[in-house]
């Protein structure tokens, strides 16, 4: 089906051109990664140093803080923060996919009265500026004791991911051929089996796209994480921002090391599911 819509082929010449352009575009990130391997003086050296003796001190400093009074080093909480980021983003995105897929199936196969109105309101909640709801949510979390707990931030991020999960997954359900499902029902399959045995396997690509896109958006969320996570549940973006303060100015090497480490998981996820991303960007509102 998709084969007749193949795109053109090009050789290594094109690879060279694209490689150069890609590298120029990537350069600001490349420089951050280089900075992560530099000493404090090398990092701010002018003219900028492209060649230097790399050091792993910054990466060590992410996880261990050296003490002034003794040779012993104390562990920082960054392992916990990395765990929090992965756990919170991963769980919230998966939860949103679960809730979103059920709703998407209903919107697609069992339309409600005012189906389009529901869908519009759902999309609006995704488009609204977070600043509109931040104060009520903050007050709500304080009143219910959700502030600083895993439950609170998980619930919030799940809600944050539901709208586009619904839109994206629905577009995939819409594209399936309902006749196959009807035929299966005629043959005596239960609705349960139609959903799990016939519909879901056909939309794996859509689920993958939803996952990648949700991860990218949730991974870096800052404003809500800043206000609603506590010491135990802090995510990396918040911890990153907290390294900025202090009397000695920004420790660029340390920050670069955190940024570099923090890029690795999301890059792996994106790389593995890259082909699905094309579907994700339009929130499923546009069909191929």
């Amino acid at each position: 089906m998709a084969k007749q819509r193949e795109i053109g082929k090009a050789g290594w010449g094109h690879t060279a051109v694209a490689g150069i352009v890609g590298f120029i575009y990537f350069f600001p990130v490349f420089w951050i990664i280089l900075t992560a391997f530099k000493t404090r003086t090398d990092a701010l050296e002018i003219p900028p140093k492209l060649f230097f003796t790399p050091t792993l001190d910054n990466f060590r400093a992410v996880f261990f803080r050296s003490s002034i009074t003794s040779d012993e080093t104390a562990a920082t909480n960054f392992i916990l923060y990395f765990f929090n980021s992965i756990f919170i983003a991963g769980t919230a995105v998966l939860l949103a996919m679960l809730i979103g897929t059920l709703a998407a199936y209903a919107f697609s196969r069992h339309p409600l009265k005012g189906n389009d109105t529901y869908l519009f309101i759902i999309l609006t909640t995704r488009m609204m500026p977070p600043i509109v709801v931040i104060i009520p949510i903050f007050l709500m979390f304080r009143l219910t004791g959700l502030a600083g707990s895993y439950w609170g931030i998980l619930l919030l991020y799940t809600a944050f991911n539901i709208p586009f999960s619904i839109w994206l997954v629905k577009s995939f359900f819409d594209e399936l051929n309902p006749e196959i499902e009807d035929a299966a029902r005629m043959d005596g399959s239960t609705d349960w089996r139609v959903f799990f045995g016939i519909c879901l396997p056909q939309i794996y690509a859509g689920l993958a796209a939803t996952f990648v896109f949700g991860m990218i958006l949730t991974w870096n969320e800052f404003l809500f994480a800043l206000l609603l996570t506590g010491v135990e549940t802090r995510t990396v973006p918040v911890a990153m921002a907290r390294t900025l303060g202090g009397s000695v100015g920004v420790d660029y090497g340390l920050l670069a090391a955190i940024v570099t480490l923090f890029l690795i998981p999301i890059c792996i996820v994106t790389f593995l599911l890259q082909n699905q991303l094309l579907r994700g960007v339009t929130f499923g509102t546009v069909k191929k």
């Binding site: 575009y25 870096n220 990153m240 900025l244 940024v259 890059c267």
Partner: peptide, 16 residues
């Protein structure tokens, strides 16, 4: 791989 280079900026946090 080259497309990954171009996609990376989108995956950075605003803070960085």
């Amino acid at each position: 791989i080259i497309m990954m280079l171009v996609l990376t900026p989108m995956m950075l946090s605003f803070v960085s």
